[in-house]
């Protein structure tokens, strides 16, 4: 009874595994890499838990499903940093700020003094911004490792090979395209820099009509900067253009970033369906859970709950668009 094998140890697979453990079911997990790592696009995510900001371009359901994500991650061993999101724009792109404010809620306007009070390093650099107080962020790699540790504590080792048994949960991300032809890859490029001389403590989004950027602190002077959104499918290396654009934007945020060390340049394909919303699909013994798009850490807890509701209770949850057991 309740023999379940999860394929993939990215954010989707591990969130489902953790949710099953919560409900007293011990799954098998198979990932050729044997541990969370660069094989998963969630390894290169920003780790923003920012459902209100995402509502600028995402459907309202992303906010509804993502609003409890920070609590879930905290309850599952991740260090969730609840310092909100600061949204800024260079003075000549103020119209972008007005638009962002119109398209979102749960923010308050901040002036130069309020910005400096939040982030002293930005004193005198921006006249206006928006502060989304309820948002949070986490370190994606540490969060995945925390989920892995919960599996280890339950006696589950991630298997590198072997035949799946029982019900199969396919959480392989873009690799599942062999079975899901309407899945596409939306390329994202990111970089990780170390710059101890610039001390920022919360996620910062810098609006720009063409090159919007976010910067997420990882602690110890390390920052993740992301991320491009390109409709170009598979995995490629970071282009010079993207690197230049992201670094210029960081420099526009704070000139101190000119002295940063570049630790990592990364690129991957986010799995997405045509409406950029997640999907569960049941085909025979296999339940596909996929399409988290740019909302991996934000939506994985809710989609994992739906997957568990289906696997354990036979429910037909929201976003299940195929059910052929």
């Amino acid at each position: 009874m309740n023999d379940i094998t999860i394929l993939g140890s990215g954010v989707m697979g591990l969130a489902i595994a953790a949710t099953l453990l919560d409900r007293g079911v011990i799954p098998r997990v198979i990932d050729p890499a044997g541990k969370p790592g660069a094989q998963a696009c969630s390894w290169r995510a920003g780790g923003m838990l920012a459902p209100w900001c995402e509502a600028e371009s995402a459907e309202p359901v992303v906010l509804r499903l993502g609003v409890d994500a920070a609590d879930w991650w905290q309850a599952h061993g991740a260090e969730v940093i609840r310092r909100g999101t600061l949204v800024l724009a260079p003075s000549r792109d103020r119209a972008e700020l007005d638009r962002f404010a119109r398209m979102t809620e749960a923010h308050r306007p901040v002036d130069a003094d309020a910005i400096a009070a939040l982030e002293p390093e930005l004193q005198g650099r921006f006249a206006r911004g928006l502060f989304f107080e309820s948002e949070a962020h986490l370190n994606p790699r540490a969060a995945l490792m925390a989920l892995r540790d919960r599996l280890t504590a339950a006696g589950v080792a991630i298997e590198t090979e072997g035949e799946p048994t029982g019900l199969i949960v396919d959480a392989r991300g873009f690799a599942a395209r062999d079975a899901l032809p309407d899945l596409r890859g939306v390329r994202g490029e990111m970089l990780v820099i170390r710059c101890p001389e610039v001390q920022l403590t919360r996620t910062i989004r810098l609006l720009h009509p063409r090159i919007p950027l976010y910067l997420v602190p990882r602690g110890d002077g390390v920052y993740m900067i992301g991320a491009t959104m390109l409709e170009t499918g598979g995995k490629y290396r970071v282009t010079a253009r993207s690197a230049v654009e992201m670094l210029s934007a960081a420099y526009a945020l704070h000139p101190g970033f000119a002295e940063a060390e570049i630790l990592e340049l990364g690129s991957d394909a986010r799995p997405a369906f045509p409406d950029n919303l997640p999907r569960l699909r049941r085909r025979g013994n296999t339940l596909f859970a996929n399409g988290l798009y740019r909302h991996g850490y934000l939506l994985a807890p809710a989609v994992a709950r739906m997957a568990a509701d289906h696997l354990l209770d036979g429910q037909i949850p929201e976003f299940m668009d195929e059910n052929h057991p």
């Binding site: 596409r184 409709e231 170009t232 499918g233 490629y236 045509p274």
Partner: peptide, 13 residues
Amino acid sequence: RREGGAGQDFHNL
């Protein structure tokens, strides 16, 4: 330039 390359899925859309 930005959507091309291997973006066959998007082209099909």
